[in-house]
Write a protein that binds this DNA or RNA. Structure first.
Lengths: 256, 256
DNA sequence: CCAAAAGTGTTCCTATTACACCCATGA
DNA sequence: TCATGGGTGTAATAGGAACACTTTTGG
């Protein structure tokens, strides 16, 4: 018995496939439930934050948690993410990416629930505009534990508490590790900054993500040499110091 | 309404949680089925390979596919991977890691099936020992499309065909991209080489994964400087050339 | 003028590349 | 001895880190 080549007895095979599928009942066996959870990351000042929602029902009622929800039978994972984010936070059209899938047996008290964790990157300005940060949403602070780029993290809610519902603290830690690893190779920081930004704005985002200070000159040259930013020829004035040149994301290497 | 602090009205909350969970029926709604699929990668000679199994039933009967199966209600994802690999290939105790989750609505003709793709790394010697490469298993050849480190790939089965069942070709491509990205930062290549190896053995593995030649001296120095290999003080003799020094994985940075 | 923030010049150092060369063995 | 694969020296280069310095604004 060999694998089918293209066109080889395709009719008979197709009939067998069709008959099999007609008789197949995929819901015949018990199986895990599937959710998506999203760590929406942003930078406020010099600290990395994650958007948390208060759980309004059990399990974990009253605890802070990542926005999430069950995956519908007719929607892809990314569609589920978009739907959940719009419902729980009002945000839409932001950069999202898949992170990892968490499937330990005891991670949800409701039963067997496997979650496909995602992360999203949004400028803080947009969150403040759209999200009601008093109506059940907050921006938890992510504190890198180590002095350099390593775990562990502490996630600190608005009232100083550190616990999140389910295994959501582990998801946040994985999200931070992921964007740290991708920071220099993918347009991560550009998603966290307004359309127009100064190089020091951008540097503050890099520093918040990495949890350590960067050399100003080295950073500036590295970013400009990358060809990922284009100068706008305008300056940001009004502060009590020398105006900084404004840039936007784009240019040679940006893949636009 | 504020999030619960530690110990605050814990009894009442716990009662509510317990009551909720007692009444909760998680199987009440239709939902996707969940599988795991594994790309078992290895290096034979100078080419990267992936272990394929022939599908013995519909859908895709007769096509080559990655080993995979449904996730049980009482097993974690990694347990499901181990079970599936032992059942379909006889391999066990190898290095596996999660890759990504594929959840497009139409990816499986049986209905809505979401798969958590994994990859595994095994030395070719072990596959030849354990797996029956004539009884429904084969080592498909992975051909990098670009001249450097980029996609696309062609996956070539034993009889020259290129199609895999479902979206498994995309999973293999994602697996190769992942191990390419991790090659210099994680012990990827060491999983693909026997316990005792020469530096040129190791270099051939790196070259197969990257799809390009590496400078011998640069490679040798980089690996030895990493502290990840320790010389055994013995040599591999018997070839018709100068015997090469044997190494094993371990040492300072190996995290053993 | 001074504080504060923006922006630049220069030096040092390390990792990577490229390429040429020497060494040990079996036939 | 020669072919084959194992192993090394060295110079050129690129990129990042460190640090001191100058410039431009608002008060």
């Amino acid at each position: 018995m060999r694998p089918r080549r293209a066109g080889e007895r395709a009719d008979a095979r197709d009939d067998e496939e069709a008959a099999f599928l007609a008789a197949y009942d995929i819901s015949a066996w018990p199986r895990p439930a599937l959710t998506v959870d999203v760590a929406i990351l942003t930078v406020v000042g010099d600290s990395l934050r994650v958007l948390l929602v208060e759980r309004s029902r059990p399990p974990g009622k009253g605890l802070w948690a990542l926005p999430g929800g069950f995956v519908g039978i007719e929607e892809s994972l990314s569609e589920a993410v978009a739907r959940v984010l719009a419902r729980e936070t009002g945000l839409h059209d932001m950069y999202t990416a898949q992170l990892a899938t968490f499937g330990e047996v005891g991670r949800d008290p409701r039963g067997r629930v496997v979650t496909v964790a995602h992360y999203a990157l949004v400028p803080a300005e947009r969150i403040v505009e759209v999200v009601d940060l008093r109506g059940g949403c907050t921006l938890g602070r992510i504190i890198p534990g180590g002095r350099d780029a390593g775990p562990p993290f502490v996630i600190e809610g608005p009232t100083g508490e550190t616990g999140l519902a389910f295994d959501h603290a582990a998801i946040v830690a994985a999200a931070v590790e992921r964007i740290r690893g991708r920071l220099w190779y993918a347009p991560v920081a550009f998603q966290l900054v307004p359309d127009e930004f100064t190089l020091l704005d951008l540097q503050r985002v890099y520093e918040a993500i990495l949890g350590r200070a960067l050399d100003k000159n080295a950073f500036r040259r590295r970013i400009q040499a990358s060809g990922l930013v284009v100068p706008l020829g305008r300056r940001r004035e009004g502060l009590r110091a020398r105006p900084a040149e404004l840039f936007r994301f784009g240019g040679d290497q940006a893949g636009v």
